[in-house]
Design a protein around this nucleic acid. Sequence first.
DNA 1: TTGTAAGCGTTATCAC
DNA 2: GTGATAACGCTTACAA
Lengths: 350, 350
Amino acid sequence: MAITLRDVARAAGVSAMTVSRVLNGRDGVDNETRRRVEDAVKTLGYLPSRVAYSRASRKTSTIGLVLRDIANPFYAILAHAAEAAARKAGYRVLLCNTEGDLRVEREYLEDFVLYGVEGLLLAPASDESRHSVLPLLRRGFPVVLVDNSLPGVDCDVLVTDNVAGAKRLVEHLGALGHRDIAHIGDAEDTFTGRERLQGYRDGLTALGIGYHEGLVFRTVVDQLGGYRAAQQILALNPRPTAIFAVNNMTAVGAMQALRERQLSVPEDIALVCFDDLESLAVLSPFLTVIDQPAAMLGRLGTQLLLERISGKAGARHQRITLQTELTVRLSCGVGLGAPKKQELMAEGSH
Amino acid sequence: MAITLRDVARAAGVSAMTVSRVLNGRDGVDNETRRRVEDAVKTLGYLPSRVAYSRASRKTSTIGLVLRDIANPFYAILAHAAEAAARKAGYRVLLCNTEGDLRVEREYLEDFVLYGVEGLLLAPASDESRHSVLPLLRRGFPVVLVDNSLPGVDCDVLVTDNVAGAKRLVEHLGALGHRDIAHIGDAEDTFTGRERLQGYRDGLTALGIGYHEGLVFRTVVDQLGGYRAAQQILALNPRPTAIFAVNNMTAVGAMQALRERQLSVPEDIALVCFDDLESLAVLSPFLTVIDQPAAMLGRLGTQLLLERISGKAGARHQRITLQTELTVRLSCGVGLGAPKKQELMAEGSH
DNA sequence: TTGTAAGCGTTATCAC
DNA sequence: GTGATAACGCTTACAA
């Protein structure tokens, strides 16, 4: 039904091969012949099938982007930048939301590879993702990890300095007078979860505050998880004066729990987290955050991947750590003086 | 290098065809033979090439999702739902951000089709997108339009009731005492832009307020556009007491402009818009909006498309209009009494 | 129930 | 310069 290369060849009175050469801009074709072919292409309105091209050339010009949830602004921005970078290089992007489900992740990775993607940009769901990634890597398949790193997996990795960021956040809270800082952490074993917990501990140490297991609540890092963790935190006695949430969604969930209890942020309790919620910040500059360069993760990650695909990348794998930025807004209680709880205690001692 | 169907056939002592039958779960294969094939598949660790499958069967199990900007939460949620629905049906999703650029949109649509997507879910950039869509439709290619409809294009369409939503928003402002309501509209000719403008006019009419061209500012519907439009609005004398922004990003931009001028929302000027910014609303319930069911647009749109692809959809095209919801928060000035400007005027008359 | 032959639409290889 | 031929790895159609 559709016009094929052979139709063009016939119309131009040449072989299919010559048409192919013309279309792919190879030289070694007589100018006169080239013209005839080009005319035939135009006359017939011929459009080459990329599927057939992919099969024959084994080049799909497609990469797979696998992440937890594109509706999360952090990943949405990352995805946007990744797609733009891919497009600029003539690549298409196949999208997958794993929902943090390892099985979905594994199935999608396999499917994408069989479908012929030339490489994968993966934000792994957890350490367990390595079981899906290692077999690919062993076959020499190009994979770049973003956001989360994977223990024992040797490939290109692009992450942020989670330890430093978390430490900074906690120190900032400490400077505002907070001593009882709860942490909502990742229940899964993840690089980011571990690092941010480490940063939390480092921050406490720097502040001369002891680390208490009872102040760390590990949960699924989505809104519901944050909500539940915050509920547990609010049941604590004495109640912490600040919460450090491991990511944006848990902070949103925590906020929800606080609101339900009629607690104000930052007056009753401070709340800070990783990952900015950009457009939100413009509308109401509220949440104090460690802002990860999501767009850069997407763009740079894609570029790394494309270099790996094209073979331009060296044999050694890159491991790039980007720095984060502390954005101070209201939710940490800056400008409020010491945390309320301490005020209350002071009042109590009158 | 990789194991092929023939390798399996050889190992199992059958023909390639029989292996194919087993793999695709067709019947008409002896149980004993099936077992032998399955064993061989396992032993060899055979994985079928989906690229070859696609070429031979002409089924890529892939759809294209083409929209303006996945970093916009509205589209991100739509995309998330679309991908989930596609996955459930065994389909992959190829993603494209057009950035509102018609050329990018057209090139991507063509590319996706040549690449073999079985259908397209498109949120068109503007009316002009029809030039890219009509040729596809004429070939009988499955296309479903979401968010924006296209004049003179006959295909499945899934939109929201923009007129009713905009009218509701304006009436709500009117009920709060606003009479001078500016509108930041879409500079492109778009279905949503027209409809929302129409709803704006209908709302004014219902309120017994005259329509003034000078209160309508058409701009690119992104943050910068909203920012600039708001600047123009603020230069107006008398200054409107409320702004109705055509979408979330223009509202964010408007907010930015207001903040720069040290104007508070809603005390100095009210601000409402289309599209919710979900997680944001939890953190600080600020913006009064007409909330479009983004997830349903994505899910339903994908389902429509898959039905069209499978031929289950009837010859007649669907045109579905979903209802929106008014979510009243603070930015409209509810609870503030009459708009400040009127208060000032009242004071002036003392 | 199973196999054979002929593609799917292009590119790579090696002659001419 | 150009073309014939054989892939790429599978499916469809038909034959046995």
